[in-house]
Write a protein that binds this DNA or RNA. Sequence first.
DNA 1: TCTATCATACCGACCAGTTGGTATGCAAAA
DNA 2: TTTTGCATACCAACTGGTCGGTATGATAGA
Lengths: 210, 210
Amino acid sequence: MTAKAQATRERLLVAAKQLVMSKGFAGTSIDDVLKATGLTKGAFFHHFKSKADLADQLMRWYAENDMKMFRTFLAEAEAAHDDPLQQLLHFLTDFEAYLCDPDHPPRGCMYALYTYEDDHFENSVKDFVSEILRTWTAMYIRKFQEVIDRYPPAREVTAKQLAEMIVAVIEGGLILERAHRNPGMAARQSEQFRAYLELLFPTASEQKAA
Amino acid sequence: MTAKAQATRERLLVAAKQLVMSKGFAGTSIDDVLKATGLTKGAFFHHFKSKADLADQLMRWYAENDMKMFRTFLAEAEAAHDDPLQQLLHFLTDFEAYLCDPDHPPRGCMYALYTYEDDHFENSVKDFVSEILRTWTAMYIRKFQEVIDRYPPAREVTAKQLAEMIVAVIEGGLILERAHRNPGMAARQSEQFRAYLELLFPTASEQKAA
DNA sequence: TCTATCATACCGACCAGTTGGTATGCAAAA
DNA sequence: TTTTGCATACCAACTGGTCGGTATGATAGA
């Protein structure tokens, strides 16, 4: 694939993402994508063998970018602190800033979008979404386990519970954000979650204050 | 409208809800609904003047049922306890049981589904969804305010923050539940939120233990 | 260096099936 | 008899998808 072809593929994916995020996948026609890019059917079906294939490639492309961002933030946080809890809080605040960034539409999460239209997707796509969410969760679990190992939680809690909660909280926040057309609600949810963490690990907070 | 006509309308709405919850709104055709009910176009367009009208009526019907359940659970909780925090916890556990009830598919929340397809809906519908979510939130806010007024929170927090968080947590939990085809995840999120509440209002927990 | 060959990248007309929506008819209820 | 509640037949627009074709190179043989 030449660089130009690569660029064309990217144009299609970018436009598709934009449209899908505001109209849903089934609600986005191939013609919509072509109108948005100025390309034609020939171009589309050269890069994607069907609409279902677009669903697949779009999700994988989205997840790849997503993961890249995740890892960047995580690496940054790990470089900035030794303490695992401080790393987590740092990561979350970075992520909150990202969520609030006005240059960053469209708002929302494509994993959530796909799950609410799942009857249209092949099992491979659904499994992929599930797997990606599990990967996110697993990365959180690791960090939370480190935290729990170091600081006694004020209440019995597992790393998995906390990991799933932060994912849920952000997904839910994004929904509220969209429903109320009020950017920042997802970030505020993450903030509340941090408040929970501070109550859970009071000894860590004391250490930080010291 | 006769009783039979009312029943027909209900049949259409029930089928539409089922289909929309698994395929999305745009992904559900009128013919799908008719196939599911055994009715015909004549029946459909007698009750709904367009597909957009179905979107509107379906959401209002859904919200009405939803609210009815909410109020029932709340009334029950208020009858069972004097203490506002105990009422809230009672409500949440009831709600968790409802979320886990296997007789209660399809899983998910139609408000979330609509927000992820919002470009297809008229503003009146989008505004309605926003308003309904606000109503839910408002009911939580009232309760949390009572709790905060009675018990000093271990950390500064507003009733609104807690109200939005429980909504977000459940919405997010429902997404995870769908993505992983793992019923019960939403309920587990609610459980974690209750853990947060117990840490926030320790004096109340002591009183309960006493 | 020129040219023949061929794969890549894209175009745009076209197709069959599906979409939301309409017009009409008709039986039963009011 | 009139209205309500639904069935049937139909339509134009749009859907995802196909297909013949073309422009653009890269490569390799002369």
